[in-house]
Design a protein around this nucleic acid. Structure first.
Lengths: 139, 139
DNA sequence: TCAATTAGTTTGTGACACCAACTAATGTAG
DNA sequence: CTACATTAGTTGGTGTCACAAACTAATTGA
């Protein structure tokens, strides 16, 4: 049964599965993948526009519209920086935080289903291997 | 060191890593993620527009422009169906196939680097686990 | 045979990506 | 203490890509 796809196709297809699940959960709340990443990144940071551009690997001009739309929905706000009158800090609102947490919960349920065919030890092994790969990439 | 992120964050972050690598390799050739998926899907199929929409989970009206642009670059062609004069078959050209293979090779190199921190048996285990998850999702 | 269905395109709207050019504030060299 | 360069962020222009609704043309079926 379990036709091994090889590491390249396996990881590629798995990534499409996972991203697809996340995108669908996000779409329920009219969030694009980029919006999800924005909310995710803001959970533990209050970056300026330029830092945000670096974090999301986008052009800074793309950030303006992204934050505009999220801000129009009350998910984030622009707080003027104290030390630099040119700069702003982009900050998650309570509403934005709540929405991020909701999407995260829903997505977690999807992942549970996805890996439901694996035994608990296998799930732990997969989690550990994924973590190792991520860790490597950060070095 | 190896802080386990848990299965949810682990798979999510891994999927962003993998998709990011693929997107960058594709961007070198001015291919969007959707174009890559189009080329990938056409490797072993010659679907009509509606089937393509189902495969890519897009609206059929989105397919028209997608195929238009790929066709303008000589990557795919529209072949009129023999049996149904309304229908077309979207087919990969030699150029499209060559490009798809090139992107696949480049991306394969990225994956090799990504999992380079794992031993060979670990890589096989990861590949097997990924394959199992994918297989489950197809049932 | 003729109404309903199906295949695909067109039109219009919006999100989102880029680049280049811009304003305003900050930094720094002389 | 200016004057110039740099930095933060926005604006405007272009193109891709997604959707929905309306359309044309061919096919099906009652």
């Amino acid at each position: 049964m379990s036709q091994d796809l090889g590491i390249v196709d396996g990881l590629a297809q798995l990534s499409f599965l996972v991203q697809g699940a996340l995108a669908k959960r996000a779409a329920v709340h009219d969030l694009s993948m980029t919006q999800v990443r924005l909310l995710g990144v803001l959970r533990d940071r209050r970056p300026g526009v330029n830092q945000l551009a670096a974090l999301l690997e986008l052009d800074k001009s793309s950030i303006t519209g992204l934050v505009d739309r999220a801000s129009a929905r009350g998910l984030v706000t622009r707080v003027p920086s104290e030390r630099d009158r040119r700069a702003v800090e982009v900050v998650l609102t309570d509403r934005g935080r709540a929405l991020a947490e909701e999407v995260e919960r829903d997505f977690g349920a999807d992942v549970a289903v996805l890996v439901g065919g694996l035994t608990d030890p296998e799930q732990r092994r997969l989690s550990a291997l994924a973590s190792r790969v991520i860790e490597t990439s950060q070095a």
